[in-house]
Design a protein around this nucleic acid. Structure first.
Length: 197
DNA sequence: CAAGTGATTAGC
DNA sequence: CTAATCACTTGC
C-alpha cells in the first residue's frame, strides 16, 4: 500500500521524518521490475525559518520551487557536481518543508543495485544520500514526481517502535549558524546501513 | 584528508 | 556577467 496523501500533508515535518523510518521506498525499472529499500535515516528541513533549508528566508527560485508544492511530491536536486539527493516534500502547498532520505536498507532488486554500484560492498550500496540515488536510479527527471503516482513512491512497510529511533544533528550544514545543531536527523538505532555511526 | 564536478545562487 | 558555494563520495 502506498502511503496516503494525508501522511505527507501533516504540518509537523519532524514527526513525518520519524514516521518515514522503516517505510519502503520503491522505484520501478523500465522493464517493470522493482528496486526498493527500507528507509533507515532521514533529515527534516523546515523552511523558511530553518537556516539550513534551501528555502530559508523564503528563498523561492527555479530549484526550490518544488519545495513549495503539495506534500507527497519528490524533490530531487543535484549537488557537488556529481550527486543527486532525494527528498520528500511535506505540508500543504506554499509551505516549503522537506525531508532528505539519507540511507536505505536494500530489500528488492539487489542485483540491479549491485550493477549500478559496481565494485561496492553490500553496505555501500545505499548508505548515503548520493549513493542511494545511484542504486535506486533516481535523478532529476524525478523532481516534482507525485509520490502517489507510479514513477516513485513509498509504501507502508513497518511502523517503527519509538524505542528503536535515534536522533542527532544534521550532516553537512556547517553554514547553518544556530540551526546546525538542531537534532533533526533521525535514524534506526543499530542499523548497519545508516550513513554515519 | 582533499580533490572533483557542474548546477545554482548572489552580487555586481 | 562572474565567482563562490554546495543537505557528498571516493581514493589517496
Amino acid at each position: 500500500m502506498k502511503l496516503p496523501r494525508e501522511f505527507y500533508t501533516r504540518s509537523d515535518v519532524l514527526k513525518v521524518a520519524r514516521d518515514l523510518l522503516c517505510r519502503k521506498l520503491v522505484v520501478p525499472t523500465r522493464s517493470g521490475k522493482r528496486v526498493a529499500g527500507i528507509i533507515v535515516e532521514t533529515e527534516a528541513y523546515r523552511g523558511p525559518e530553518d537556516r539550513a533549508s534551501h528555502a530559508w528566508n523564503g528563498r523561492r527560485t527555479n530549484r526550490t520551487e518544488t519545495m513549495y508544492g503539495l506534500g507527497g511530491t519528490a524533490y530531487v536536486y543535484f549537488v557537488y557536481g556529481m550527486y543527486n539527493q532525494f527528498n520528500v516534500v511535506t505540508n500543504v502547498e506554499n509551505i516549503p518543508h522537506a525531508i532528505l532520505i539519507r540511507a536505505l536498507e536494500p530489500i528488492e532488486g539487489l542485483d540491479i543495485m549491485r550493477r549500478r554500484r559496481k565494485g561496492r560492498s553490500e553496505y555501500e550500496l545505499t548508505s548515503g544520500p548520493g549513493r542511494l540515488c545511484i542504486a535506486m536510479g533516481i535523478d532529476r527527471g524525478l523532481d516534482k514526481a507525485d509520490l502517489l503516482g507510479d514513477r516513485v513512491w513509498i509504501e507502508e512497510g513497518l511502523s517503527v517502535s519509538p524505542r528503536k529511533i535515534a536522533r542527532g544533528p544534521r550532516i553537512g550544514i556547517d553554514y547553518a549558524e544556530n540551526w546546525k545543531d538542531k537534532p533533526w536527523r533521525f535514524w534506526v538505532k543499530d542499523n548497519p546501513f545508516v550513513s554515519r555511526k
